[in-house]
Simulated assay, not measured.
Amino acid sequence: METLLAPPDCRYFAAGLCRSCTFIETPIAAQQASKQQRCAELLPGVPEAAWLPPVPGGVAGFRNRAKLAVGGRAGAVTLGILDRGGMGVDLTDCLIHEPAIQSVIPILAAFANDLQIAPYSVPKRAGELKYIHVTVSPAGELMVRFVVRSDHGLALIRRQVDTLRELLPQAAVISVNLLPEHKAVLEGEREEPLLGSALAMELGEGLEPITLYLRPQSFFQTNTTVALALYEQAAAWVDSVDPASLWDLYCGVGGFALFTARSATGAARDVLGVELSEQAIRSAERSASEASIPARFLAGDATAFALAAAPAELPELVVVNPPRRGIGETLADWLEASGIRHVIYSSCNPESLARDLERMPSLSVRSARLFDMFPHTGHLEVAVLLERS
């Protein structure tokens, strides 16, 4: 991830071809100040002194995942976005992707052209190849996923997978996702693996890094450097209150649970992660086993799990990292009434965070931090440490 301070010179933005990075012409410091102000306005109950300095997300080369919409025609595809009319806009040289992703986009375009596979046309509701998703690990390995309409597209790619492996020796995972429906989503439910099963994301330096394993349909933050800073901040907050037990609700592949399980004092800490995805739970269990971290993981609905717990089973601290909609009224009300002393809430949507905090008046913000996970956009990550009054 580049550490430049000046905005990058994006020819796509200048030409009006892509406006995804809405604020790319605004200096990064001004972007972060605007986001900080927005958080302060939405969370007026947070004392100014509680805000830690924002964590920067970079200016260019920071995004670890490319979601490339396929346009054009068979033999002459575009990889990038679709315009308002559903036509492809090629963004081969997009500056926000990590260099390892930028370097393989032309290779993937050439591969798709050689396949003579028809890009899916949104206006015509016809064609085959919809998206190519590429994720890069800190070690430079790749996960490459093709989203197609039918088994015909799957068969075309499967027949040429050895060629693709030669073109991309750094690919650890190759898969095909089937999305037969005509709807505005990035993937379907069915995933067909062609190579490997999980991308290893080694995070942290020193003697005890933690490796998280991303399967093709797993969630992971799009900015690896900021994701690590987020996990490390949560670990520091947990160490500051030193709970004997902790739940990580919406744990995904286990990032918060694994980074907070190691107590700075050396005392044993009972950690349990809960996540709906069974694949994510298997990944978290693998990470825990390899790192010799005695964290436990359970596949299930986080809210249902919490509501079913007996009072004697409740932890001293809960971490929640919900989707954009937030934890919702039911879980917020449960946390308010639970008596649990500390909560860490990591949110990608300060609006839903503000709504949830209003339902938990007994929990006040002790510390807060903005993480600029999504530079050049209005999106952000904000985390707070809550303490019961």
Rank of each mutant, 00 (worst) to 15 (best):
S20F: 12
S20Q: 12
S20L: 12
C21G: 07
T22H: 13
T22P: 00
F23I: 09
I24Q: 14
I24A: 11
I24N: 06
I24C: 12
T26C: 14
T26Q: 15
I28W: 13
I28L: 15
I28F: 11
A29Y: 08
A29H: 11
A30V: 12
A30E: 15
Q31R: 03
Q32L: 15
Q32M: 15
A33I: 10
A33S: 12
K35C: 05
Q36D: 07
Q36C: 06
Q36I: 01
Q37K: 09
A40H: 07
L42P: 09
L43S: 02
L43W: 00
L43K: 00
P44W: 08
V46Y: 04
V46F: 07
P47D: 03
A49L: 07
A49K: 07
A50L: 13
A50E: 13
W51T: 10
W51R: 08
L52Q: 15
L52W: 05
L52S: 15
L52E: 14
P53E: 03
P54S: 11
P54I: 04
V55A: 11
P56C: 02
G57N: 06
G57P: 05
A60S: 13
G61S: 04
G61R: 08
G61C: 05
F62Q: 01
N64C: 11
N64M: 11
N64D: 07
N64P: 05
N64V: 08
N64F: 02
R65S: 04
K67L: 12
K67W: 06
K67Y: 08
A69V: 01
A69E: 03
V70C: 10
V70T: 03
G71S: 02
G71F: 01
G71M: 00
G71A: 03
G72L: 00
R73A: 14
R73H: 14
R73D: 14
A74P: 03
A74K: 09
A74I: 11
A76N: 13
V77M: 03
T78V: 00
L79F: 08
G80H: 02
I81Q: 08
L82V: 05
L82E: 07
L82M: 13
R84I: 09
R84G: 15
R84C: 02
G85R: 10
G85H: 05
G85P: 01
G85M: 03
M87Q: 15
V89Y: 10
V89H: 10
D90Y: 07
L91E: 07
L91R: 03
T92Y: 01
T92W: 02
D93G: 03
L95K: 04
L95G: 07
L95T: 09
L95V: 09
L95D: 01
I96S: 00
I96Q: 06
H97P: 06
H97M: 09
E98F: 08
P99I: 11
A100N: 13
A100S: 14
A100E: 15
I101G: 04
I101A: 04
I101F: 05
